[in-house]
Amino acid sequence: MSDSKEILIVEDSEDNVIFLAQILEDHGYRFRVARNGKEAMAELGERRPDLVLLDLMMPRKSGVHVYNHMREKPDLAKIPIIIVTGASVATGVDIRTGEEQPRDSYGDEMARGLGAVLHDALKGVAPDALIEKPIEPQSLIHKVNELLR
């Protein structure tokens, strides 16, 4: 049923690409890989994927950039996006809703450090699903299946 579906993995970490690719392969999905935001744009321009697994912090155009690009293009706007990130705590923005979270004392410090670059950009980013690292293969595939049903 799902063998015809193709997923675009946008991820700069080699190890994570191996991980995601193995999970998708095990469940019969086809995939392509983009190592950064710029490559992702190129891949999106070349062929429309059925779903995008999107990392947020990447060199050469961040995941937020890719997200905004996709939502602005009418032909890409409907493609489900799953954000895969380890930075959700750090940004002070709830990535599920794109709203700013009330920060506690350490969240503030973290936002200044780890998530500062993303903090402002993330406001208004509301993906179809969010997977936080460390990735739980079962939960990831469950969300993918759900969005591609």
């Binding site: 190890d15 994570n16 191996i18 991980f19 193995q22 380890g86 930075a87 705590v89 750090a90 350490y106 969240g107 410090e109 973290m110 450090g113 780890l114 936080e132 690292k133 460390p134 990735i135």
Partner: peptide, 17 residues
């Protein structure tokens, strides 16, 4: 603790991968 947890989360992701 938050900083370490964040770092460990990513490391754990690598180990799990």
């Amino acid at each position: 603790v938050a900083g370490l947890a964040h770092c460990l989360k990513n490391t754990l992701n690598g180990l799990r991968a």
